[in-house]
Simulated assay, not measured.
Amino acid sequence: MSFTADGAFTFAGVDNEVLRPAEEGNGYSSGSGTWILAAPIVDRRGPLTQVDMTFRAMNGRREAYGNRLRSERGDGRLLLYYFIGDPDSGRMYVFRRGSMPSCPVDAT
């Protein structure tokens, strides 16, 4: 995934389990959309630690679909991640700047 300062993003080769797990099934997708920083749902006045994404195109089709990545700083680096299913399971996709996502990893 590539995010630009003007609020646009593009992606290629992202696992459908992150994008639309209930609809797309197995495989990988490419496309584009827009993003904004947002506060967590549980505390709308809190710090901007979520990345709200609106998909505008996916695999050559127009889209109007949204998803949310969480963010966290660790070791001086920004991580974006998405929980697969129940967050208590610890299964997540992790996106790091300049690398392919770790798909999936178990939180420890």
Rank of each mutant, 00 (worst) to 15 (best):
T4A: 13
S29L: 02
D52S: 14
F3E: 09
F11R: 03
R96L: 09
S32M: 04
I41A: 14
D43I: 12
M92C: 09
M53H: 09
A39I: 01
G85E: 03
R68H: 04
G90F: 01
R61E: 09
A64C: 07
L19F: 02
T34V: 12
L78V: 02
L80K: 01
Y65I: 00
R44T: 11
Y81V: 00
L48T: 04
L78Y: 01
T10M: 07
S2E: 14
Q50M: 12
M53Y: 10
E24G: 00
V42K: 10
P40A: 12
R96F: 05
A64Y: 08
D86F: 06
V42N: 10
R45I: 08
M53W: 10
R73L: 15
A38F: 03
N67F: 10
D75R: 12
Y65G: 00
T34D: 09
R62Q: 12
P47T: 12
R20N: 14
L78M: 07
D43F: 12
N67E: 06
S102F: 14
V18T: 02
A107C: 11
S99E: 10
I84M: 13
G74P: 03
N16M: 01
M53K: 10
G85N: 06
Y65A: 03
D43G: 13
R56Y: 06
N59H: 05
G60S: 05
P87T: 08
A57P: 00
R97D: 15
R91M: 11
Y93D: 07
Y65E: 01
E72A: 15
